[in-house]
Design a protein around this nucleic acid. Sequence first.
DNA 1: GACGTAACGGTTGAC
DNA 2: GAGTCAACCGTTACG
Length: 351
Amino acid sequence: MDQTYGEVNQLGGVFVNGRPLPNAIRLRIVELAQLGIRPCDISRQLRVSHGCVSKILARYNETGSILPGAIGGSKPRVTTPTVVKHIREYKNGDPGIFAWEIRDRLLGDGVCDKYNVPSVSSISRILRNKIGNVCHPGHYETSKHHPPQSALPYNPIYQYSYPNHMSPTGTKMGTAAGVPMTGHVGIHRAWPSAHSVTNILGLRSIIESSASIGGAEASPYPTKMEDWNNVNRTGFPSTQSINGTEKQAIDSDLKYPQAPSGLPAVSSFVPACSVGPYPSSNQVPSYGVYSGPGAGYMTGHPWQSQSSNLSHSGPGIAMHGGDIHASMPFKHLSAREGMQQSLHMVRRSSL
DNA sequence: GACGTAACGGTTGAC
DNA sequence: GAGTCAACCGTTACG
């Protein structure tokens, strides 16, 4: 378990297979790209594979977010009780209706959108298994099926098809504030632009987010790392307000000591480039890199165990918070002066 | 050389 | 609680 995480790519950069790059690096990739730096140069500078740079930039261009998607889990069910209910109604109304017609009606009636409409085969399965013979109108719920009304409690859950609340993959969106969605974003992964670089840098919703963060202990905030990343990304605010969980997002950055040192600011890109994201002078390449500024954490907290760490706000949390602050004093903040100022406000308000 | 992308091995979380 | 599955990840190699 000791330092079994982390590999070194061909560029000498450290990565953890299967895990997203630290958000700091992701952010920096986008920042550099916006500065006109070529992807290949970004790749070399940050020692991230060009494929990854390409992916992140493509995703950013597409979604406006630098954040990784929600890892793991299953796709949200599309055959919600409500949908089943509607299918049943359609079938009852027209026993000869085809599955594809039902599908069209679901779309047309606004029951589903193109992102969560069940497939024809799914509809057929519903008709076969859940509805059965339509000659028994009103006889739906032959099994333990919940009556339509019982479907309602599901809605908040399935609602995560809609990004204003949480992503379909379960990534709760920390805020609906400042989420300038372009129309109906039924995007599979809801990428709230509140997390976009623009907003991150603009910090338009930092205060709001920080307020939410401050109340994290009382709010049903996400337990997934991605979720907390979202929260953190909203403004990279102080970590003290989120016990332990903050550590998650920050951890991912700490894993990569180049992040603090390599993220002085966009404007200092050149120095960062010259020094290199993985300052070999200070850091031992390869796995040793992980024992950089975040070593205090790293030694005791493997890269994984996100949720476990989250769920266990046990001893060491406070220490981590302090260590984190000491070792990486808002590295992201330096990206923008305005960010610093806003964060000052955030920190004050959270104190 | 730069870039996009499929394949790959890996992690994660819902079921 | 373990296993399965399907999402995601970043790297690598190829065109």
